[in-house]
Amino acid sequence: MRTQVVIVGAGPAGLLLSHLLGLDGIDSVLVERQTAEYVQARIRAGILEAGTVELLRDAGLGARLDVEGMEHRGIHLQWPEHRHHVDFADLIGRSVTVYGQTEVTKDLMAAREKAGRPAYYSADGVTLHDVTGKPSVTFVDSDGKARRIDADVVVGCDGFHGPSRASIPDPQVWERTYPFAWLGVLADVAPSTDELIYAWHPDGFAMHSMRSPRVSRFYLQVAPDEDIAAWSDDRIWAALSERLGVPGWTLETGPITEKSVLPMRSFVATPMRHGNLYLAGDAAHIVPPTGAKGLNLAVADVALLARALTAAVRGDDRLVDAYSETALRRVWRCTHFSWWMTSMLHRHGDDFDARLQLAQLQRTVTSEAAAKELAENYAGLPL
């Protein structure tokens, strides 16, 4: 088989890139090692930046998003006895939308099937060849048949553990592992808040989010090696009530349907291009989830890359030549913002560090300039 672009990885980044290229008449084939059912069921980020929402709408992917997405004007920042609303819409004229990655993936899969774009799921032994010359990708398909796809370009949207980044010789890597993790909880209970709550507490960070008007998502700061079996439902609700509690507010509880411990780390690998191989999303960078940047950063990568590859097909290589440098400017900005949010809200260090965190929180909610800085980064830089 031959195509113009082979995309390794059929998560939301790979699916969106294939969709955007298709709108410009560029053929692509998706290759994914997991089953389609596994990809669609993955629970990930739930906050879409304003630019991500606009891009999805412009690409014809906004029908269900506009009905089921929950627009939020801002977030709540909290510490004991205090809860303050940071209104992004008032500050910068942009909002965010709660619409889970699972839902985005469903919309993208439906669009792929409607357009008839080819995809191979359950691909085994995916290997990249001659990425600095005439690239190809080989694998064994779900029927056990060996396949080879020749292409002009290979794009790695295959995450941290995929083969794409490993095909770049001697990448430069920056990494930080944080000394805490999140205990993530999904519960069948209506949200007790209108918008997300980010709470600093002496016992550790807590967050109240939501997936729908009937399903809530919660996070608790725990140790990286936390034994999830030690957290009964009663213990989880008690900790959430303590860390999220403020006078006059009650946390509603309900059946807990999912628990998991999520490690916290930052990772950036450069370059994001090697010959005719390009990296996008988690294949090149990972951020802690505190700033809600992971999915949005992947969307920004593929939006930039789709424009660059389209221009290159038409004879203009300037955007593809600048892709890595251009993408990394945004990557490092979002990495810094994610680090800043994480460092401000998670209990670590001694009491001196705690006082610094509280001073930063107070500054953020009392200074218009500081609040705007948070709003601009959280709601998203322009694509």
Score class of each variant (00 low, 15 high):
I197S: 01
D107F: 01
E252W: 04
Q221A: 04
A115M: 10
A379F: 00
L220P: 02
A190T: 15
V131M: 01
H161R: 15
R330S: 14
L55Y: 00
A370M: 00
L279W: 01
A322G: 04
R94V: 01
L345N: 09
T253Q: 15
L304D: 03
R2V: 09
T253A: 11
H336Q: 10
M341D: 08
R176S: 03
R57T: 04
K106Y: 03
A110D: 05
I197W: 08
V155R: 00
G133V: 06
R83N: 10
T253C: 14
W340R: 08
R117T: 12
G294N: 10
D225A: 05
R83I: 08
G62Q: 08
L297H: 04
S338N: 14
V86E: 03
A303Q: 14
E195H: 15
G349E: 03
V98M: 10
L381T: 04
A110Q: 13
W174Y: 07
H336V: 06
D188K: 07
E226N: 02
A181S: 08
I286K: 02
P191R: 12
P213Y: 03
H348T: 13
I92M: 12
Y99G: 05
I7F: 06
H84T: 09
H19Y: 01
D301I: 10
T138M: 06
V31K: 06
M272S: 09
D150Y: 02
L17C: 12
A119P: 05
D317I: 07
A371P: 02
E242H: 07
R42C: 12
F352C: 09
G275Y: 03
V31A: 04
G125H: 04
G116R: 12
A45L: 01
D130C: 12
V173D: 10
R57W: 00
N296R: 13
L358I: 06
E68T: 07
N377A: 15
D27A: 13
V287W: 00
P169F: 00
P271Y: 05
D234A: 15
L16D: 01
W182K: 13
G11I: 12
D203M: 02
F88C: 15
R117Q: 09
D301G: 07
